[in-house]
């Protein structure tokens, strides 16, 4: 029962990643794509956490932590670059 609900939640989250990906493809400007990337990465962190529970692997939470750290740095660097260069 609980696993079925979790599977539904994971599918809905993946669907929303796909919708955000449409914005990533469409643009029109670079910063629109940065926003879409930010949304995708935050949803992906949650999907990793859901999968960690479904596979009963605690180590996946560490993967989510590192992924969150790297995507935050990525967004920061790109936005900073568009403001005044590195």
């Amino acid at each position: 029962m609980a696993d079925n609900i979790l599977l539904t939640a994971a599918v809905i989250s993946l669907l929303s990643i796909f919708i955000a990906l449409l914005r990533f493809i469409k643009g029109p400007s670079v910063l629109d794509r940065v926003v879409a990337f930010d949304v995708i990465s935050i949803i992906a962190i949650s999907v990793i956490a859901i999968l960690a529970y479904m596979f009963r692997r605690a180590i996946y939470i560490d993967v989510a932590l590192v992924y969150g750290l790297l995507s935050f740095l990525g967004v920061l660097v790109v936005a900073r670059y568009y403001e005044r260069g590195l």
Partner: peptide, 25 residues
């Protein structure tokens, strides 16, 4: 306990869906 947790996860994924819709619209 399990049911409460999975319902919370489901609510979270619905919020994700709405915010992705917002990014498009």
């Amino acid at each position: 306990m399990e049911i409460v947790g999975s319902i919370l996860v489901l609510i979270g994924s619905l919020i994700f869906f709405l915010s992705a819709l917002g990014v498009i619209r």
